[in-house]
Design a binder for these strands. Structure first.
Lengths: 215, 215
DNA sequence: TATAATTGACCGAACTGTCAGTCATTAATA
DNA sequence: TATTAATGACTGACAGTTCGGTCAATTATA
């Protein structure tokens, strides 16, 4: 009988070895030998499990995304109040962008760079799709908030993009300089400002009044 | 004597031809021939004006940055009130991220991807430095707002990073899918939410008052 | 003015280093 | 031993850079 290995398992092992290499060096600078070295196998062996460098890269992307989605799903499953949901979403993101995940994150930047240019072609992966999905998730929560009168009626699509953008943008700054602030405090402040801002909308007239009667 | 050309001017001409190519294809996919074709010169001629592909790329980066800085400086020069300043900053960004500039923006993504990995080395250009500068600009305005009692005392460094992040993140979404929203409405909503959120803190008492005397 | 001399901008063929991917060989296992 | 797994030297394509030749513009000279 021939030698038998668990193909699936070994594929995943290679993937997990590849992710930090991609994250550290970027797609282009990452050579197949680097991945082979990290996985402690020969270069040729990689091709027993992946068709190409590109395939590893895309697989790595989905691997990281899947993990993130699982965290969000777990956090959100047991919440009913939409405003709570929004807060729990922030918490989920805090978890995603912390500790263990930290070393996987830089990989996203390359997907952005790639995704932004591949937006027209129906690529295997699509940055647009990921933004769409996340924006929709936030929008749905916001819509529910509006429906239940928790926040003032706003353009929820735009506000969702603001929230998503803020988290996204802070993450990039944080990756660039982790000493600057903790992602926890950063996201907390974001949540506070935005939630306060949304609820405040309601009081627009009061601000006008306040101007007439300055303190 | 041979034909005389303005070296500076021609260098800039090449640069301006290179920027949209970089923006469209990304650093790696952009070949020297592409730049040469775009500038309508021979491949070899480029090397009369630039030492390397990398040098063009970095020069292109500074070229775009400089333009953006000029717009901001112009917009901000004639404003005194710090809250107005903040609004004008949003306006400046709206201008930067619109029309003529649109085609230069994708280039930033590659700088992010590169900058994020070069954060340790003292690179010729640095994403960290750019974030630092912009964050400082916002922070200074916020500090002034706080000092003059326009907004409630907050951690201005964090809030500055939130504002910067929000604009940054929205830009990326917009580049990914320009049909989704206009950058104008997106930034306007951001400004509204954030400014309201910040002022809200201070108006806490007023809201409490309001509850006592509802309109 | 006509023509020769001079210059350096311009060019692209050729050179060169770099990898992604292949494949002939070896190792491992049942 | 039969079969699969693993390997790393090899290769061919690709793209950044180089460099010797060409040519248009300018100046010097008769």
């Amino acid at each position: 009988m021939p030698k038998v290995v668990d193909k699936k398992e070994k594929r995943e092992k290679i993937l997990e070895a590849a992710i930090p290499v991609f994250a550290k060096k970027g797609i282009v600078a990452t050579k197949m030998v680097d991945i082979a070295d990290a996985a402690e196998i020969g270069k040729g062996t990689i091709y027993e499990y992946f068709k190409s460098k590109d395939e590893i890269f895309i697989a790595a992307f989905y691997y990281v995304m899947k993990k993130a989605e699982n965290i969000i799903a777990r956090r959100m499953s047991s919440v009913d109040d939409p405003l709570e949901k929004l807060k729990f979403l922030f918490d989920a993101w805090k978890e995603i962008f912390s500790s263990e995940f930290r070393n996987h994150l830089e990989i996203m930047i390359d997907f952005w760079a790639e995704g932004i240019r591949n937006k027209d072609k129906k690529a295997t992966f699509s940055l647009k799709k990921i933004y769409d999905e996340n924006r929709k998730m936030i929008k749905d929560i916001l819509d529910e908030c509006v429906a239940k009168g928790k926040i003032y009626p706003v353009n929820t699509k735009i506000v969702a993009s603001v929230i998503l953008g803020a988290l996204d943008g802070e993450m990039v700054q944080w990756i660039t300089d982790p000493k600057l602030f903790t992602i926890e405090e950063s996201f907390d402040v974001t949540a506070e400002i935005i939630l306060t801002g949304l609820k405040k909308e309601r009081a627009k007239n009061d601000i006008a009044q306040k101007k007439r009667r300055p303190t």
